[in-house]
Structure formats: structure tokens, C-alpha cells
Design a protein around this nucleic acid. Structure first.
Length: 686
RNA sequence: GCCCCCGUGGCGCAAUUGGAUAGCGCAAGGGAUUUCUAAUCCCUAGGUUACAGGUUCGAUCCCUGUCGGGGGUACCA
């Protein structure tokens, strides 16, 4: 039973007692009631019920007969126009048009409330965005940020308490890489000028160096006649090559500040560069730097011969990470120096995307809690030792998650466990939603199972998984030189393109003798921003989040079809008419107006408007913002049809004009609300 | 090797989780404009839902197998 008033609930409430009467399995009642839904084909009716077939099996009768009996029981419902049986036993419902009109009148108040009444408010922690702060955000972070932010708004609108938390990757290996890079590869003058850019550059270089050795080693291992002679030969060749480079560049010693990257084309080592989102593997590789010989000179590197010979760079930055975690004074102070720079960069993007968080508790926040957490889990034998590490797996054959490494360092699984405990202690949430890339499915499966054994089985832990962001050819998005596309560049591009298209469109309309509103430069900037950013967000949200997503600026800004621009434009049209009517919007919003639904366009529009609450509920239930987008697309399309067929300001009578103005207003309110839930802004004119 | 996800008109995607004749947008072709903002609306064409079986009143959806694509697979996160 829901106290949320909606068309669907009206039907369900009406059918509940009737179904109960026939049902032999009362526990199935809700399943059957769930089979009442919006008609798939409007020609069949407004809503349909598909339960007669299932019921038939249960009762051993013919579905059509059962359906007819149910219809008979419904005959005294005044709001029902027709209920008919079709096909194998579908029941089609059609509401009385006058009743819909009256419903809309009372709905006028409800839709203007800032949130819906919730009969059962719950606490949700939503964990989203969660970038590595050691480097600039790029497209990979977009989906988590946008989907997460939308879910926050949607759950809040439904009356729930939502705690949004950005689980920053601010303590992991990325910082070890940054520290190593800072100590060995930094260009000091550049760092002085622009620390953010220089740290980003250094990060990419360290990554490349590490990958160089991986590739190098793979090459060695693939040689079947791998032997000492070959290694010696390679070493000689390398020295030869290096002395050439040095001569050419007039460099004698190869030292940190002078390390240069030779330009080269390579497509081999850059092929696993999709960011994993949450504290993701920065497997992003810049271009080939095979020519580069590292200057891994730290004495401390000798500690681990094995990993040194495998990959000295990786060994070196791991060591920096270990030192940071162990509280090494220099590294900690450098971490404190880097963090504000990193955060500043990230906050800039959030500001543009209009995304915010209640908390930004990164990995570092939980660091001190890890020993206790892991000890507790070990003591309860939820974790077990294996090969020097402390691991979790559900059973012998299940996948293993390392929680504490053999060198004593904690992994992100340990951090995530501590985070669950912390969130439980602080917020006692009903659910925690992790908006993270699908590739971490295994991790979360293990994490959730482990948390359950640990005693947190009462929290609804959900991995809100989403697919990769790909380019128009279905490949990971990269710049021409093989780097991941940075988010601010991409947003710039979107806004720039929005402006260009606006100008084009404006010239077009002027050529056709249309009257164009004169906008100031600031207003045009605003249009470009709202349209551009909206396009990026909507394109992402309108797609089923579980599938991969092809990022195409051209398509998302085409301004035709199912794009945010289409919705924003429909909104502008609503507002345009209302403005011309001379009515005071706020005052008119409080007025109850008699609604006339004489045309099919008006009726369809109203029916869609009244499905608003059901849509938001369904969206939240499946954590699927694209339901909301589909609704918006329908609504805006129906409004445009209404706009074409039903004159508002020139309606035949004053009453009809008022009625239609009210439809414009309610449509405007719903479009704006829906877009806002998705994190997309609207304009009054464009 | 093992595990997970995906395969739907030329392209990009839906199908509210087992419902009726599989929808929509681009792109293609045709039409509407002395406009309430045409960034719009209407019409046409385009499909054996990768393939082969199975389950049942009914399958894009569930099961088995095959092919193709992506991802994961213990000390990165």
C-alpha cells in the first residue's frame, strides 16, 4: 500500500480487494498488482493489466473468463471509462477524460512541492565520482559523477535522507607515483609556474616509465632463446642508443630535470587505458617512451631485488607509497603540499558540472582505522592468511581479495571495509550505493560478502555498475597522442560547440525574418554553458547505465532527437507562452483552473503529466535515470504536438485559454523538475 | 584456463524485467511555416532481436550449446 497518489496506485488500490477475493496464494498479490502498468500501445488504452494469464493457471480457468469477471467487479468505479479484455486475457483500462482533468487540477498543488511525501523515508549513502586526486579528471570519471549526482537528487525528491560521499583516491599508489615523480622527474620552474599541470605531467611520465619496463620485460620473456648473451646485447644497444640521444641533445648526464620524452608512435602499450573510475587503475599510458631510460637511483630500492629486476620504477614508487603510509616526514609533508593543488583542480570541474558532496572522505580519512578493522576481521577468521598476505574469499574456489599485502600494506578492500563500518556507525544507513564502473563487480561482490560475514548484512549494499565510456568508434577515448581526454577540455568543447550551434541557428532564424531576442554576451555565455553541459549530462543519463556508452559530442549537441536541448527548448516554449499571456507565473501556479481536454493532444499530455510520480519511483527502484529521460522525451514530444495543434493564447474561449495555459505551466514545472533531478539547468529564453 | 557483461533496421539506442503488431533518434526520401520561438510537427522506407535448440498460453528477456566483442582473474585502485 502506498500513500503516493498516482494513476497506477489508483488502479492497484481498486484491484487489490478484487484480486484478493480470487487469489489462492495471497503472498503473490503484490506480484500480480505489479503487472498493472502503463499501456505499451496507447491504442489499447491508458493502462493495462497482465495478471489474468497467470491467475488462470493458478485457478485452472480460462484467462479471458477471469479477466471478464474482474472487469465486472470494477464496473462501479466512477473514474473508469472502459475496461476491456483483449487478446489472450489482457485487461485494458481507460480513464474518464473528465476525471483526468479533475485529477490534474488537484495535482497542481502536489507537483509544486519540493519533494514527494514518503511513507517510509530511509537513509541512503551514495558513493560516487571517487576519482584519483593525483591527476586530472577525464571522461572516465564523468559517468560516476553524473549518475551519482542524479541518484542523490532523485532519492531526495522521494523524501529519503541522502548522504553523498566522494570516496577520493587520495592515499594510494597514485601518490607514491606522484612522490617518485616529484623527486626524480620534476621540472622545478614549471612546478613553480603551474603546480597542477606539472604534477599531472610528472604523473603521466612515471606511469609511462613503469609501462616501459613492463613492455620491455614482456619482450624479453617472449624470446624463446632468452639468455644472458641477449640481455648483454640489449644492454649494449641501449647504451649506444642513449649516448646518441645525449649527444644529439647536448646532454651529458641523464638527470631528472633533463629527462625528455622522444616523440614516437606506438599503439601497443596504450591499449588498456580505460580509467576504472573509483580509485581506478590508472592504466592510462601516454605515448611510447621506450627510448627513455629511467634514473631510478634511490639506494633504498635495493631492498627488493626481485621486483627491482622486474620493474624498478614500480618498485620505487611502491616504496614511496609505503613510506607515506608509514608516516615518513618528507612524504607526508609533500602529500600535504600536493593535496590542495589536486583538490583545487577537481573542484573546478565539480563547479562546472554543478556537483557537490556532503562529505569527501577519501582513503586517507580511513587510513588510521585500517589496523583495527583488519585485526578484527582476522580475529573473527573472516580473513585468513595466505602466502604472507591476509585475504578474503567466500570459499576455496572463489575469487581472492587481498586485504593486507605481505609487506603489511592495506589494500583498497581494507579501506572499503573500514568505510562500511564508519558509515554504519555514523549514519546507520538503510543502503549504500556505489556508483562505480562495471569492472569492479568482482571486487564489490567480495566486499559485500565479507561485510555481511562481518555483521553488516542488514545494510543493502548495491554496486550501481555502469559501462565504459568509448569514443565514436567504440574505443577508449584518447587524445591524438594517446592520452585520456581531460574532462575540462571536453567540457570546453561541448560549451564551445553549443555556442557555435546557437549562433548558426540564430543566423538561420534571422534569415527567415524571425524576431530574435537580443542577448547580451553574458546571456549567450549562459546559454552556451547550460546547453553544452546539459548535453553532456543528458547524453550519458539517457542511456541504460549498464551498457557501454559511446561519447559523441556531435550527436549529443545535434539539438534534434532525444537530447537535453530538445527538452530545454520545450521548456522555453512553455515559458514563452506564459510570458506573453501576461500572467504572473507564481500567482497563476497557485490557482486552480478548470481543465478542458477536448483534443487527443491535450489528453495525452495530461496523462503523461500524471505519470510523473510513478516514473520517479520506478527510476529510483532500478537506479536507472534513463527512465526519467525517456519520460522527459515523451513529455516534451507530447507538449510539442500540443503546441502545434492547440492554440493557447488564441484559444476559442477564455476558459479554454486558461486551461491550456495551465497545461503549459504544469509541463514547464515538470520539465524543469525532471531536468533538475538529472542535474541539468533550464533557460527562460534561448 | 576459469568467471562476468554485451550482441536488436546503415549508425546510435529503447523495450519499466515473461506480454499484444519489437519502439525511438540520427542518417535517407516526401510534406507542413504570412509561427504562441521551426532548436518544431506530420508522413514514407528500413527487422528471422548473432546463430541453433529448449522451457510455455506467450521469449529480445529464462535454460543449454556455438560464434563474435568487451572486461575481470591475490598483493594497482
Amino acid at each position: 500500500m502506498s500513500n503516493l497518489m498516482s494513476l497506477q496506485n489508483s488502479l492497484r488500490d481498486a484491484l487489490r480487494p478484487i484480486l484478493k477475493k480470487y487469489l489462492r496464494t495471497p503472498e503473490k498479490l503484490d506480484d500480480y498488482l505489479a503487472m498493472i502498468k502503463v499501456a505499451q500501445n496507447p491504442e489499447h488504452g491508458d493502462y493495462q493489466a497482465n495478471f489474468a494469464m497467470g491467475l488462470a493457471k493458478e485457478l485452472g480457468e480460462k484467462p479471458v473468463q477471469i479477466a471478464q469477471r474482474i472487469i465486472k467487479d470494477l464496473s462501479n468505479f466512477p473514474w473508469l471509462d472502459t475496461a476491456t479484455v483483449a487478446g489472450p486475457g489482457f485487461i485494458n483500462f481507460r480513464f474518464k477524460t473528465e476525471w483526468l482533468a479533475d485529477e490534474l487540477t488537484s495535482w497542481n498543488q502536489r507537483i509544486q512541492q519540493s519533494s514527494l511525501p514518503s511513507e517510509n523515508p530511509k537513509t541512503y549513502v551514495i558513493d560516487y565520482s571517487s576519482p584519483n586526486v593525483a591527476k586530472p579528471l577525464h571522461v572516465g570519471h564523468l559517468r560516476s559523477s553524473i549518475i551519482g549526482a542524479a541518484l542523490v537528487q532523485i532519492f531526495r525528491y522521494l523524501g529519503h535522507r541522502v548522504i553523498s560521499d566522494n570516496h577520493l583516491g587520495d592515499w594510494g599508489t597514485q601518490f607514491g607515483m606522484l612522490l617518485y615523480g616529484y623527486k626524480n622527474l620534476l621540472r622545478r620552474s614549471d612546478y613553480k609556474k603551474d603546480p597542477i599541470a606539472e604534477l599531472a605531467r610528472v604523473y603521466v611520465e612515471v606511469r609511462s616509465l613503469g609501462d616501459f619496463f613492463d613492455t620491455f620485460q614482456e619482450g624479453l620473456q617472449s624470446q624463446s632463446d632468452f639468455d644472458l648473451d641477449k640481455v648483454n646485447l640489449l644492454s649494449q644497444l641501449m647504451n649506444l642508443y642513449l649516448s646518441g640521444v645525449k649527444k644529439k641533445r647536448g646532454i651529458l648526464p641523464v638527470q631528472s630535470d633533463d629527462v625528455k620524452v622522444a616523440e614516437g608512435d606506438d599503439s601497443q602499450i596504450g591499449n588498456k587505458s580505460q580509467e576504472k573510475g573509483r580509485k581506478g587503475s590508472d592504466a592510462e599510458v601516454s605515448k611510447a617512451q621506450k627510448e627513455l631510460i629511467p634514473t631510478a637511483t634511490g639506494d633504498e630500492l635495493n631492498e627488493n631485488e626481485e621486483s627491482l629486476s622486474k620493474n624498478p620504477v614500480v618498485a620505487a614508487y611502491r616504496l614511496e607509497t609505503v613510506k607515506l603510509h608509514a608516516g615518513d616526514a618528507e612524504n607526508v609533508s609533500l602529500w600535504q603540499e600536493f593535496m590542495p593543488w589536486c583538490m583545487q583542480e577537481i573542484e573546478k570541474i565539480y563547479a562546472r558540472l554543478n556537483i557537490s558532496f556532503d562529505y569527501q572522505h577519501g582513503e586517507s580519512f580511513y587510513h588510521a582505522m585500517l589496523p583495527d578493522v583488519v585485526d578484527d576481521l582476522a580475529q573473527k577468521q573472516i580473513l585468513r592468511p595466505s602466502q604472507g598476505a591476509l585475504i578474503y574469499n567466500e570459499n576455496e574456489s572463489a575469487r581472492v581479495s587481498v586485504v593486507r599485502k605481505k609487506d603489511g600494506a592495506f589494500t583498497y578492500t581494507a579501506t572499503d571495509l573500514a568505510t562500511i563500518k564508519y558509515r554504519y556507525d555514523s549514519f546507520s544507513p538503510y543502503a549504500i550505493l556505489y556508483v562505480v564502473d562495471f569492472r569492479q563487480a568482482d571486487h564489490f561482490k567480495n566486499l559485500f560478502a565479507c561485510a555481511k560475514s562481518w555483521g553488516y548484512g542488514n545494510i543493502d549494499l548495491q554496486h550501481i555498475s555502469f559501462g565504459s565510456v568509448l569514443d565514436e568508434n567504440g574505443r577508449p577515448i584518447k587524445t591524438r597522442d594517446g592520452n585520456a581526454v581531460q574532462l575540462h577540455d571536453l567540457l570546453d568543447e561541448a560549451v564551445h560547440e553549443a555556442r557555435r550551434l546557437y549562433e548558426l541557428n540564430r543566423l538561420d532564424r534571422m534569415a527567415q525574418g524571425e524576431e530574435i531576442p537580443e542577448f547580451s554576451k553574458e546571456e549567450i555565455d549562459r546559454i552556451a554553458h547550460v546547453v553544452g553541459i546539459g548535453a553532456v549530462k543528458y547524453a550519458d543519463l539517457s542511456q541504460n547505465r549498464t551498457t557501454d556508452y559511446r561519447f559523441s559530442l556531435k550527436k549529443m549537441l545535434s539539438m534534434e532527437g532525444n537530447t537535453s536541448t530538445y527538452m530545454q527548448y520545450a521548456y522555453v516554449r512553455c515559458k514563452g507562452i506564459l510570458r506573453k499571456s501576461g500572467l504572473d507565473f507564481e500567482k497563476f501556479a497557485q490557482e486552480s483552473v478548470k481543465i478542458y481536454l477536448n483534443t487527443a493532444e491535450e489528453r495525452r499530455l495530461v496523462l503523461k503529466l500524471l505519470q510523473w510520480e510513478d516514473t520517479v519511483v520506478a527510476t529510483a527502484k532500478d537506479y536507472s535515470p534513463h527512465y526519467l529521460c525517456a519520460y522527459l522525451w515523451d513529455l516534451a514530444g507530447l507538449y510539442n504536438q500540443f503546441f502545434v495543434h492547440c492554440p493557447v493564447l488564441r484559444a476559442e474561449t477564455e476558459e479554454l485559454k486558461q486551461s491550456r495555459l495551465k497545461l503549459c505551466q504544469l509541463t514547464a514545472i515538470v520539465i524543469q523538475r525532471a531536468l533538475n533531478l538529472l542535474g541539468i539547468e533550464t533557460l527562460e529564453r534561448m
